[in-house]
Design a protein around this nucleic acid. Structure first.
Lengths: 331, 331
DNA sequence: GTGAAAGCGCTAACAA
DNA sequence: TTGTTAGCGCTTTCAC
């Protein structure tokens, strides 16, 4: 049997209270007994039970991380960063993949609720924000990653989408492209990136052609499909901004099927700077989100909410960067 | 405050034992009271506390999944499958990335031990097998994924590495290649795949040239480096078997740097069939591990150990399959 | 500086 | 069929 606090108390000839105190460095205990307790803990190979302490302290030191799909490179990379940041702070993560599926979201939220996680980190693609509010207390720690919830008031950590869109389009414009297509997602971040697109078009006196803007759900197949549509219309764009790397990879496939050289015949730029952007040929020019900093920040945000539930919520937007590789070139 | 079992008991005019019984469907309770209890649970928006029940039942319904790195596509894909299988069985996962780092392994194992996970799933790359044995009981549920521990006795779920190596090399041989290089890892699975290589060479009467066998740590950069070495020697191989997709992607990079066409000048085959194998150009021919089945099996294996700790351990080897894409061709 | 005791929310004997 | 009660392993007053 795993030794308990009673075992070490008995063995060290002290009370369990004393053991607890040396365990948590609380109260005052004599140097001598402290040493003795510590050494018998070692002798017994004692490890305190987190579940017992969670029950008394009403705190589990764990967080729920809700993402669409851990096997998607962007989310797995983000998860890794968040895992490290959480671990650093003594928190463990329940990582949950919901596949944009409301039913799965509900089940996972209920599960985590029963597991008494101390807070949630919710990544883009989460749909059940309202269900969430019903299930849990209004002041319960929740932070949003790369997702907005305009109707609710949460801490959110995100990339500056306008800036990201701006960087991407501006890069294409500076390369001389004047007929630029966009493959966007049905999400808020894409909408904002499109604002940058429109504004930049205005600035350059270019007419914004709606037919050049495709919206879809982000995956490689859809990227391919949308790119084909773009390429099939008359006067097709000479450059395409895909709102994430997966869409961009799909777009590159389509271009290749059309026997188009990248970047000679058509330039393609992605978003996220996932591993996919550096493993293909040509390597993908893309916009990098500073996920390391963002991961740290979001963990800090949840912790802050845990400590001060009534604190004012913030939105922190991080500055993206252009990563020039091989998929974009002069027109 | 979150309602407790006492709240619903009082509200429904029954004892907490009764509530517990309807909660767990144990004992016998009258239809009528059962209904009443259930409805007041709904009214109060009651959700039982897993931590309290964990404390009494000495079972947390959670598993530790130890992998080298969740941001590595192979492991993120594997994790996804295991997550789903575990969720299906009512188990949640603590996913821990250890970076092949003994210190991190130790910290995570200790952490999970205190969290009282019901079992461990340990994926390839784990080094502290012996530490593990010291920390936990001999009959504690542990299953190994794609990793062997010859000196210990565990349930292991793995791919049939010999068969995988055989499929890869045989594919290359059937394409006419007679000078085949291998980029392997410093791990047992690679060793077994190399057995297949040697055996096949023997069968074909080909001399096994040690200079054609490179060993390294699996990542893209090392794949590139090893491939360059292979390519720089005189009479370089016309085909290379990389023991996983990351190495293969690196190898493709190197080939390209040498202005070699794939597969015309050199064929490359990978292993794992991760997303990387279908996003590049040319798409990578590779060996697929049936990770869906393997994921289900390993969760089942841990559950089985949880229920019958003394059960005989097994090794289950799953049959891989050749996925022909574009990176291999006739010599 | 140390200990006794209550309680965290639940399960499982055992009684009734 | 339902209720009483004793823990599960820990934290935290409050006495001493």
């Amino acid at each position: 049997m795993k030794p308990t606090i009673y075992d070490v108390a008995k063995e060290a000839n002290v009370s369990i209270a004393t053991v607890s105190k040396v365990l948590n460095n609380t109260g005052r205990i004599g140097e001598h007994t402290k040493k003795r307790v510590i050494s018998t803990m070692k002798d017994l190979n004692y490890a305190p039970s987190s579940v017992a302490s969670a029950l008394t302290k009403k705190q589990t030191d764990s967080l729920g991380l809700i993402i669409p799909d851990i096997s998607n490179p962007f989310y797995s990379e983000v998860s890794r960063v968040i895992e490290d940041a959480a671990f650093e702070k003594g928190l463990t993560l329940f990582i949950c993949s919901t596949d944009y599926n409301i039913e799965k979201e509900r089940k996972y939220i209920e599960l985590l609720h029963r597991k008494q996680v101390d807070g949630y980190i919710i990544a883009s693609g989460f749909k059940s924000m309202d269900l969430m509010k019903g299930l849990i207390d209004d002041t319960f720690p929740i932070a949003l990653f790369a997702q907005d919830s305009p109707t609710n008031n949460f801490n959110v950590i995100s990339v500056d989408d306008y800036k990201g869109g701006y960087l991407a389009i501006n890069h294409l414009l500076s390369l001389g492209h004047r007929n630029i297509g966009v493959i966007a997602e049905y999400v808020n971040s894409s909408k904002i990136r499109l604002h940058a697109y429109r504004d930049l078009c205005d600035m350059y006196g270019l007419p914004v052609q709606e037919k050049n803007i495709k919206k879809t759900i982000a995956n490689i197949t859809n990227g391919e499909k949308m790119m084909k549509e773009l390429l099939q219309q008359e006067n097709p764009p000479t450059a395409v901004f895909a709102c994430n790397d997966a869409l961009a990879i799909g777009a590159m496939k389509a271009a290749r099927e059309f026997k188009l050289n990248i970047p000679k015949d058509v330039s393609i730029i992605g978003f996220d700077n996932t591993i996919l952007s550096s493993t293909g040929v040509p390597e993908l020019t893309t916009i990098q989100q500073p996920i390391n900093e963002m991961g740290k920040e979001i963990v800090d945000a949840v912790i802050h909410e845990m400590r001060t539930p009534e604190s004012v919520k913030q939105r922190k937007l991080f500055t993206p960067a252009l990563i020039e590789r091989e998929s974009t070139g002069e027109v």
